[in-house]
Amino acid sequence: MSDIKKFMYLNRRAPYGTIYAWESLEVVLIGAAFDQQVSLMFMDDGVFQLVKGSDTSQSDMKNFLPTYRTLGDYGVRHLYVDKASLEARGLTTDDLIEVAWEDFETEEEVDNIVEAVDADQVVQLMAESEVVFSF
């Protein structure tokens, strides 16, 4: 398969409470082997997936926040966060983890690929995507 498509994974759920966030992440990790052009979009309660400092030690749940930090190594080029969803929950990008990205061939580096986008950009980014996986 040589065709490369623009993939967007749309994450709308809080990280714990339901399994959607974790099983979505599993698709992203497995999907990396297919070398597509991948971005993630976080909106609604999905923005909580990127909030730093989460502690699951009292809940018997595996904390998978560290996995998001590795997404740059899995070929994910952008993590977009819906600005309105952040604001509605009293959050700013300062509350979110940073995810670094590096192209191992060109050595191009980006310190943080987490980016807040407004509603118009959300619409545009979705329209530009050829596949939207919704979770």
């Binding site: 398969m1 065709d3 498509k5 993939f7 698709v27 497995i30 999907g31 297919f34 596949v131 996986f133």
Partner: peptide
């Protein structure tokens, strides 16, 4: 495996 989902998305006109 999940690869079957990714493959389906690549091969199809619409997911």
């Amino acid at each position: 495996g999940l690869g079957q989902l990714i493959e389906a998305a690549i091969q199809s006109d619409r997911l």
